[in-house]
């Protein structure tokens, strides 16, 4: 049986762990609110962008000369998987879930004989991907140089991706991130960014004909398509930010509770052991006295 001293040490160490998880939980809760506000504030733009894109693309649907960002390169051989994770752990299965989602797709693509490339954002996804798919990572960057990713930051990444696309490095790009539903639920999400998936039933036909375009529909679309990639990336980064804090809060809440349970158990064990030691001592003294 563990000695009293051992038990006391263990209780002490669990208690200090609990202090850490409790603090991290409170930090996450505070950050979550801000991150959530940022996500909500960014939605009108993304939604508006989406609807304009859909109506424009719907009108140009049959045009053969449309931008490859919209209709694709015609090929389907090389896939770029953009995986957005966070830089820090202590967020439960948050990063693992995103990577798992991407791995499923990657494995099925590789099995189908396609070429897969990885574009990694955030430290936490790198280790797994590097171990499982060595030599397939084309780019890696973390967020150590920026606290809250802003739109410019997303635009720079989007520029890089589009440059690679124009250079013919890949045909299809998928984006992986965690969608923020609530503090308790985050959904790992796969989203195609290049070519832009177009809803066949876009309501683009409603006001057709009446709208005037300046300079022209094609020019506007060419201007919007790269911007749309940046918007989608920005949205993913913000959703990820909120999801990370949400996941972290839940995970740390569980950890704090588990530590509490553990402390209770250990305390009971400690007290029982102490009692047993006292009883043994008493028995020794009494039987010693009787023997005299």
């Amino acid at each position: 049986m563990a000695s009293l001293k051992d038990l006391k040490n263990r209780i002490g160490s669990v208690k200090s762990t609990q202090k850490i998880t409790k603090a991290k939980k409170m930090v996450a809760a505070a950050k979550l609110r801000r991150a959530q506000e940022r996500v909500e504030a960014s939605r009108p733009y993304a939604e508006k962008m989406q609807s304009v894109m859909a109506s424009l693309a719907g009108r140009l649907g049959d045009d053969a000369q449309a931008s490859p960002l919209l209709v694709g390169t015609g090929g389907n051989q090389t896939h770029l998987l953009i995986i957005a994770t966070s830089d820090r752990g202590l967020a439960g299965a948050f990063n693992a879930n995103i990577v798992k989602k991407a791995r499923e797709t990657a494995d099925s693509l590789i099995a189908a004989g396609k070429t897969v490339k990885f574009y990694l954002l955030g430290k936490k996804g790198r280790a797994v991907i590097r171990r499982l798919y060595p030599d397939m990572i084309v780019h890696f960057q973390d967020f150590s140089d920026i606290k809250d990713p802003d739109f410019d930051y997303a635009a720079k990444i989007a520029d890089d991706i589009i440059t690679r696309f124009d250079a013919g490095e890949f045909d299809v790009a998928q984006l992986y991130y965690s969608k923020f539903k609530s503090a308790l639920t985050q959904v790992p999400t796969e989203q195609q960014v290049i070519p832009v998936p177009i809803d066949g039933h876009a309501d683009g036909d409603k006001a057709t004909g009446a709208i005037e375009y300046e300079p022209s529909e094609e020019a506007i679309l060419d201007d919007l398509l790269p911007r749309n990639v940046a918007v989608q990336l920005f949205k993913a980064l913000l959703e990820n930010g909120a999801s990370e804090q949400g996941a972290s809060m839940t995970a740390m809440d569980n950890a704090t509770r588990n530590a509490g349970d553990l402390i209770n158990d250990l305390t009971i064990q400690y007290n029982r052991t102490r009692q047993a030691v006292i009883t043994t001592e008493l028995v020794e003294i009494i039987s010693g006295a009787e023997a005299l």
Partner: peptide, 19 residues
């Protein structure tokens, strides 16, 4: 400030899109 020149929008402007 539109790409091809400034334009002013008042009530009842015709549907229009510009960079």
């Amino acid at each position: 400030p539109g790409t091809e020149g400034d334009f002013a929008v008042l009530e009842g402007h015709a549907p229009f899109m510009s960079t």
